[in-house]
Design a binder for these strands. Structure first.
Lengths: 193, 193, 193, 193
DNA sequence: AATGAATGAGTATTCATTCAT
DNA sequence: GATGAATGAATACTCATTCAT
């Protein structure tokens, strides 16, 4: 139809990917759900892999809408807080996406797919380094290796949500939120001047 | 063949699992690599799932050989250090295993397989809680919620190795080790009395 | 191929079904005999079951061409005679079909397949009730329970052909025909006014 | 165990056959249910087919226990009645057996299996001819072709139960019994002197 | 008399992809 | 831009049977 078949395919693919994982993402299912023939997809995407990659890129775009508004915060520490909170919101509100983007490494999903994941993850990494660095520059954190601190923060987030999302630990979202905040505070506390 | 076909199947399955993930673990491939017919596997394992589960159990057994020796340490803090170090060694020496056991969550992997992962992960969790608790009891950590601290430690490990293993950050093992230790010290520092 | 692959598949499936029964009807065999790949069948039939059902429907359609012309008879008794004769012709000329449609009950044949058999058999049943009823209404049979008489007639047919088709009794078709007619007359005789 | 493994195998095979039909009768299942290894069966039965055949023979033995007591009746007509009643009881109480012995012709179940069915069915046929003949000899039926009358009777039974067993007609056992008796009476009525 | 191991053929079905139209 | 037809490889799993022990 007019509103761009390519868009339609992509959105359907995301939906399926989110529900069934990379294992469950098949051209047939996408085609069926999009109301077109399986072969028609090839008019818009070179291969399943290309489609898969685009789905990931889309996911990171969504992630961006959670993370980047943090920049609107008035001061460095608030911006870091907002980033941490954005992370939490994305992980809980879009937990399936979080999993697929940050936790799954569905091995051998073609090198190219992996590459996309890496590239995007690095973007996030850089963003966090900047947040940490400006906290140090502003004197709210003591001077330290900003990269390492950023990685520590990301590690905690990643690890925390990994445990949460995979269901290895239970608890309501609110419980998790409180726990997350206490963990975050414990970390921040050790970093403060 | 004398060297026990079952053993052979399992080791081949581990190998494949390690190289291609649960997605790539197929009865046919296992059979081929083991030099037997595909059906012969069923003599030794009830189903693919049963085989898959056994692979995981084997992996956790290996993990145990890295983690549990920490108990031989002379005091609580040392035992915690050794546990952290064991974690690191397992993650680096058996990085593929680390990934598959702790980081992957291939959603479609039959409930039973998931159950094995959860159960074993909880074991590790309990082990860490004990390590932290005894540090508090011994007065080297200030009193706090041992569970939450253990989770924080695990989160950091999980997150750190998640980033490492997935190749999202580069660096030699030695570099990583040093980084890991500094991160660990930062955390511990905030916990000390 | 021009002559419609679907048609080809169906006809081959009928052939196999007729020779080997539902037990011997396999996608692979059909594909091989139809000169296409096994998977190609799925382009035309949703599943083995769907194919199986279509084979049955086809069989009943054929049956109809034997039975329904009886309606062209000038009077009720003739119509009943013609129906009985149509039955006989179908059972002898398409004995394998007769068997598969009316006599087999391969229990494991998916509910849906059974449903088709039941539905169609009921159609035939209704047809016979109508034939009997109009004989009664016309006064050539004495008033009685038309349903039961129809069932009796069908039972005899079914039983007779069951014995014939399964080879439990021998004899040339002509011999059988004569026997059938004598049996039929014996029955009818008891029903006449 | 002592009470003859062969017996055990056979009884288990009957059980399975009765529940799952010839399609569901597999050496593995029999072995498992009998508590022996699949290969052990071959010590007692040459092949699956041989076992299958023996199951049928057993079934006919059971059938005999329903039919032959009719001989104890005081006079020819009673004996015929008792035979007809035995038929009904077997068909309703052992409907699965009835189906397998008299109605199923699970094609190509090896010629030998078919042969067993034929041979045994002929026995029943002969028995019925005798019952009919003695009714004629005793003057309760008018003289006619005993063979044909017997076949008519058998046809009705076969057809009736075929419809009943296959579920093509519904109704409680009591309803069926009454219907059966009315049909039988209609037939007999036409045969009486 | 019975077992465990193994086999090869068979089952239905799903998948990504290609090709002619 | 899109379709229908077809393919070949792959999936897990079942089966009857054989063989060495």
């Amino acid at each position: 139809m007019l509103p761009d078949t390519k868009e339609k395919i992509l959105s359907v693919a995301c939906e399926i990917y989110l529900h069934a994982g990379s294992k469950g993402l098949s051209m047939r299912k996408v085609a069926e759900k999009a109301g077109i023939s399986a072969t028609a997809i090839y008019r818009h995407f070179e291969s399943k892999d290309a489609l898969h990659r685009q789905v990931l890129v889309d996911g990171f775009r969504t992630f961006g809408t959670y993370l980047y508004p943090a920049l609107a915060g008035p001061d460095p520490l608030t911006r870091l807080h907002l980033a941490a909170e954005g992370f939490f919101r994305f992980a809980t509100e879009q937990s399936r996406y979080y999993e697929l983007l940050f936790l799954s490494m569905d091995c051998l999903d073609e090198a190219k797919v992996q590459a996309v994941l890496k590239r995007e993850a690095r973007q996030t990494y850089k963003f966090m380094i900047e947040r940490v660095q400006e906290c140090m520059d502003a004197g709210v954190f003591r001077q330290d290796n900003a990269e390492e601190i950023a990685m520590l923060l990301l590690s905690v987030c990643n690890g925390f949500f990994g445990l949460y999302v995979s269901g290895k630990f239970e608890g309501s979202t609110d419980t998790m939120k409180a726990l997350y905040e206490r963990s975050y505070q414990r970390l921040i506390h050790g970093l403060a001047v």
